[in-house]
């Protein structure tokens, strides 16, 4: 371990207090957390790729450091935000499906075909 590593500060990552269990099987709670984290990380990766693409187009050639200093113009910010919203809705489609079914009238059977 180098001197720098020894000096590194590690902040606590888990909040104190009882965490509620939301599902009958606690494994489902953990899986949901994993899925949501994956959602986030894929979104981060997509943003990073977006930056790369825009820089490639802009410069033809770029340095890795360019990515860290890329400043997001307002219009790009807006485009990214809209894309993220669509992405979130896609991953959470199972939730929307349940709601849609709940709001649909009838028993869900296609009466035209069920003769």
């Amino acid at each position: 371990m180098s001197k720098d590593d020894q000096k590194k500060i590690k902040l606590p990552r888990t909040a104190k207090g009882k965490k509620p269990q939301y599902f009958n099987d606690p494994t489902v709670d953990k899986l949901l957390s994993m899925v949501l984290t994956l959602m986030g990380e894929l979104s981060v990766t997509r943003d990073r790729l977006d930056t790369v693409e825009r820089l490639v187009e802009k410069n033809g050639l770029f340095k890795i450091d360019d990515i860290e200093h890329y400043e997001i113009p307002d219009d790009v910010n807006q485009i990214r935000s809209e894309r993220r919203s669509a992405y979130i809705a896609r991953v959470l489609k199972s939730v929307q499906d349940e709601l849609d079914a709940l709001e649909q009238k009838g028993d869900g059977k296609n009466t035209e075909l069920a003769d």
Partner: peptide, 15 residues
Amino acid sequence: RNHDEESRQSFVNDF
């Protein structure tokens, strides 16, 4: 925030 930290925060915001 570096590039990915900004993006991660924006995701949480939009989520």
